[in-house]
Design a protein around this nucleic acid. Structure first.
Lengths: 68, 68
DNA sequence: CATATTTATACCCTTATGGGTACAAATATA
DNA sequence: TATATTTGTACCCATAAGGGTATAAATATG
């Protein structure tokens, strides 16, 4: 299901059988950023997250919280 | 429609008839941040965007790009 | 139209993100 | 199980995000 951004990216990356260093290079971000991102760090920059997501044809957008 | 995060927040804020200073205070972020956010600044921090969106019962998540 | 309110831009300053890198821990593979 | 690969954590440093604030521009209201 990949509820969080972190797990989404991790899953997508593994689907493509790409390592973190490779993903970082392709996305044009630092390796450390990719790692912090997949670890669920909240205080990341929106534009850099989107740089990574762009590799999967995705992007960040507003979603409504699902009712309990 | 509010395709972008910026317009989404701006529209939601106006729906509630709240000024930017009020929104900033309620969200616990700086006034300048709210303004840059509504102006479409890309390099904002994810956690702070979510702080603002939380006021509308929303949050940031991964979305798939719509086909052309 | 004049005035009040709201929003946008610019300034300085502090803080921490992100980059690079090295090494440890964990995982995969032979 | 030994080895190779991948991932996670820690370090220093430069840069810029974000806070506060003042002022100008834009908008709303009388």
């Amino acid at each position: 299901m990949s509820s969080t951004i972190a797990t989404f990216i991790k899953e997508k990356r593994k689907q493509l059988k790409v390592t973190q260093p490779e993903l970082a290079e392709r996305a044009g971000v630092g390796l450390r950023f990719v790692r912090e991102l997949e670890q669920g760090k909240q205080s990341v920059r929106l534009d850099k997250v989107n740089q990574v997501l762009a590799l999967f044809g995705s992007e960040l957008g507003v979603i409504q919280k699902t009712e309990a």
